[in-house]
Design a protein around this nucleic acid. Structure first.
Lengths: 209, 209
DNA sequence: TCTAAATATGAGCAATCCTCACATTTGCAA
DNA sequence: TTGCAAATGTGAGGATTGCTCATATTTAGA
C-alpha cells in the first residue's frame, strides 16, 4: 500500500539485457519473483528476498527493473501474451452461433481452471485495481481479447451496430474477469455456480438478437 | 504496495473513544483522511499528514486506528452503511417486474453518478481487490445488497430455485460494481455506453424466465 | 592485448509505518 | 473539593524496506 511512493509511469526495464549472461540472470530474477509471489503474495515479497532467491545482488535486480512493480508487470505481460494467443486461436475458427457458444464456454472453463490453479496469476490480476500500470496493461489486454470476440460478432451479425458490438464484447470480457475474481474468493461450490451463471448470462447476450 | 507488511486481520479500532473529546478528534481524523484521499489517493497519503491535518499527534491517530488500513476501512464502512439503506429503500416497494426494472435502472444511475462524483469512494472501492479486509467488507456489503435484490426476485418468481436466484443476484451486483469501475476508467462517452449495456444485460437477466 | 561498454555488488540513504515511555486531562467516588 | 485511576495525548525514535551509487569485475570487439 505504501513504500512505493507513487503510481504513475509505466515501468520498463531500465536496461535491456544484451548479453547472454544477463538474459539468463533476468530469467532467474523473474522465476524467483514468481515463486515468492506464489508463496507469499506480491505485497509480502521483498526485493532483497527476490535477489537472494535468484542468486544475484540487489543492485543487479535494479539494473534491469526500475522498481518492484516492474517485476510484477513483466510477469503480467507474459500471462497476457500467452492468453491472447490462446483466445485468438479459440475464436478464430468460429463460423456460427453454435460455434461461438461452444468456444466461449470452453474459454471460460479454461480461464476458471487457470485462476484456480495459478496463484501468481491470481495475485497479479487482483492487484490490477490498485496499480495504475497494471490496470493499463489489463485494460489493454481486455480490449485486445474483446476485439477477438467483436470480430466474431461482426461476422455473425453484420447488420448490427459495430460500436454496440464492441461495447458488448468489452463489457462481457471485463465481467468475466470480475466473475472469476469473485468465484475464487468464495467457497468452491458457490464459485462454480457463479461461473456457470456468468456463462449463461454472457451467452444469452452474445447469441441474442 | 509495501510498507504495510501483511494483509491479514480485519482492522478494528484499538480503543473505542468513550469521551466526547476523543469522539470529536476521531471525527477530525476521518475527515482529514477523507480530504487527503480525495486530493492524493489513499496510497499517497501519509499517516503523519493525516495527523497534521486533523490537528492531532501521530500517537493519537494510532490510539484509535491500529494501522493505516483501518482508517480506510472505517471510511469504507460508512459508505456501505449509507448505501445499504438507500438500496433497501429503493427495492422494498417493488411489487412487479416493471417496478423492478424501474428501481434497478435508477439504482444503477445513482451509483454511476456517485462513482463519478466521489473520488474517495472511487479510491476506496478500487483498493478493494488488494486489501483483504476491504475485500471482505465489500463482499459482505455486496451480499447484503444482493440479498435485497434476491428478496424481490423471490417475490416475483416464487416458483424459481432460491439458490439460483441468490446466485444471479449476487453475480449481477458484483458485475455492476465491476462495470462501474470499468466505466470510470475509460472516456466518459464509452463509460456511459458500458453502463447502459450493463443495465440492459442485467435487466434482461432479472426479468427473464 | 587493450579498452570501453555492459554488468555486478552491497553498504547505506531515505521514506514511512508504527511503538512506547511518559505527560496531561477527564470522570467520579470519597 | 480532592484524589486517583482510567482515558487520552505526545513525538522522538525503532524497524522495515524500496532503492541509489561509487566502485569492482566481466565481456565484446577492435
Amino acid at each position: 500500500m505504501e513504500g512505493i511512493p507513487a503510481n504513475e509511469q509505466i515501468a520498463s526495464p531500465r536496461r535491456a539485457p544484451s548479453q547472454q549472461r544477463s538474459r539468463e540472470r533476468v530469467e532467474r530474477m523473474l522465476a524467483a519473483a514468481s515463486a515468492l509471489i506464489a508463496e507469499q503474495g506480491s505485497d509480502a515479497v521483498r526485493m532483497g528476498e527476490v535477489a537472494e532467491r535468484a542468486g544475484v545482488s540487489i543492485g543487479s535486480l535494479y539494473q534491469f527493473f526500475p522498481d518492484k512493480r516492474a517485476i510484477i508487470w513483466a510477469l503480467a505481460e507474459r500471462y497476457t501474451t500467452e492468453g491472447q494467443a490462446c483466445i485468438s486461436a479459440a475464436l478464430a475458427g468460429v463460423r456460427d452461433a453454435e460455434g461461438l457458444g461452444q468456444a466461449f464456454s470452453e474459454l471460460v472453463d479454461i480461464y476458471y481452471r487457470l485462476f484456480l490453479a495459478e496463484p501468481v496469476m491470481r495475485d497479479i490480476w487482483s492487484g490490477t485495481q490498485a496499480d495504475k500500470a497494471l490496470r493499463q496493461l489489463e485494460l489493454a489486454d481486455s480490449r485486445t481479447n474483446a476485439g477477438f470476440l467483436t470480430a466474431v460478432l461482426k461476422r455473425l451479425r453484420p447488420a448490427a451496430d459495430p460500436v454496440a458490438l464492441e461495447t458488448t464484447a468489452f463489457l462481457i470480457w471485463q465481467m468475466g474477469e470480475a466473475a472469476m475474481r469473485l468465484a475464487i474468493s468464495v467457497e468452491r461450490q458457490e464459485g462454480d455456480r457463479l461461473v456457470a451463471a456468468y456463462k449463461r448470462m454472457a451467452l444469452r447476450e452474445l447469441l441474442a438478437e
